[in-house]
């Protein structure tokens, strides 16, 4: 474990806590894409298949349980909770996210580190996570009214993978044979997808104006 990875995990944790806080306290999910949340639930489900078979550390197991629990409960809130579901904007959240899954699965079957079920599922989750934010970014462009919590949620979600890139650089220089091109490229693509959001988020913060994404 290194400081970059810890910072990344904490940032990721805060992103889900901010989202859960928003949904739980104001009982609203306005501006949140259910599609992105469903993709994230699938990402965690396919990445943590070995949560009970491959014990790494207490920290690792607890964090996996938190990410699994939070992503599925957010999907539950947005689908089932009688108050929250009313604020879900399904007419705007129309990204065909299932179309994202097939290319990720095919790519995972072709490009992976080891052709085993668990490794292919893990690689699938990596590719899927890289594109999981797309429905959310599309929704933000459409609805344009980005409330603070949603803006913070997307910002933290993008920042966590940027910390992970620093973690991979650190591990590359400090651990022998730590070479994982698939993870690195996928993580880089994921972070780049947030680039324009980061730009507008920073501009709005610098000029102290409400966050607006261009149409």
């Amino acid at each position: 474990m290194n400081i970059f990875r810890l910072a990344g995990d904490m940032t990721h944790l805060f992103s889900v806590l901010v989202l859960l806080l928003k949904i739980h306290t104001i009982k609203s999910c306005a501006g949140i894409s259910l599609k992105t949340q469903e993709l994230y639930a699938i990402v965690f489900a396919t990445r943590y298949l070995d949560i009970f078979t491959n014990y790494i550390s207490l920290y690792n197991t607890i964090m996996k349980l938190i990410f699994l629990g939070s992503s599925f409960s957010i999907v539950w809130y947005m689908r089932r909770h009688k108050i929250v579901r009313r604020s879900y904007d399904k007419d705007q959240d129309t990204f065909r996210h299932y179309f994202l899954m097939l290319p990720c699965l095919i790519l995972a079957l072709i490009i992976n580190e080891k052709f085993t079920f668990r490794e292919v599922m893990w690689t699938f989750s990596l590719y899927l996570e890289a594109v999981a934010i797309l429905p959310q970014l599309v929704l933000l462009q459409r609805t344009r009214n980005i409330d603070n919590l949603t803006g913070q949620y997307v910002f933290l979600l993008g920042a966590y993978r940027a910390f992970y890139i620093l973690n991979w650089i650190y591990r590359y220089f400090t651990e022998e044979h730590f070479v994982h091109w698939i993870t690195w490229i996928s993580g880089l693509v994921q972070t780049l997808l947030y680039a324009d959001f980061f730009y507008y988020y920073f501009q709005s913060w610098k000029n102290n104006v409400k966050l607006e994404l261009p149409a």
Binding site: M63, F67, R171, E175, E176, H177
Partner: peptide
Amino acid sequence: KVIVNIHDEL
């Protein structure tokens, strides 16, 4: 040589 795997990450 211990091949470090990436699966110790979240």
